[in-house]
Design a protein around this nucleic acid. Structure first.
Length: 131
DNA sequence: ATTCTGACTTGCT
DNA sequence: AAGCAAGCCAGAA
């Protein structure tokens, strides 16, 4: 469970609509596997290949690595934010309560598919998986 | 097996 | 709003 989980997280991140955002924990919830740290760990591995700026903390703070880069994306996608970026790249916060991405029925099927794939992979090797 | 760490989250003060 | 501590899950040494 490494590449599968990674692909699932990346896929979910790509599903996120522009101007919207999702918390690490939210993606973990959608996938139903691991936790916010696992999602972040994946982003650190291949987040550069997906709209990582749409994946932030549950507090609305930008990513801990390239928060400064995220700002440009937020202003470009008209993402609801509060305050402005400071010299540290932080100082502002995304109104996650309004920018919280809400997957549609079609997108839910995709996320659900990813989740099932992970669940199946998790049982791949275990002799007694409930089914 | 144990210990340490990490793009995290939540509760308390 | 800001700081500290505990919880969570998985990877690496």
């Amino acid at each position: 469970m490494r590449e599968d989980y990674q692909e699932a997280v990346l896929a979910a991140a790509e599903l996120i609509a522009p101007g919207k955002v999702l918390a690490y924990g939210d993606i973990a919830e959608l996938l139903g596997t691991g936790g916010p740290r696992q999602v972040g760990a994946v982003m650190a591995r291949s987040g550069n290949a997906v709209p990582w700026w749409r994946v932030i903390r549950a507090s609305g703070e930008p990513p801990a690595c390239d928060g400064g880069r995220a700002w440009d994306h937020y202003v470009a996608e008209n993402t609801p934010v509060r305050g402005r970026p400071s010299a540290d790249g932080t100082g502002y916060r995304v109104r996650i309560t309004e920018a919280r991405w809400q997957p549609s029925d079609a997108e839910w099927e995709v996320l659900d598919g990813l989740r099932r794939g992970l669940e199946a992979a998790a049982g791949s090797g275990q002799p007694g998986e409930p089914g």
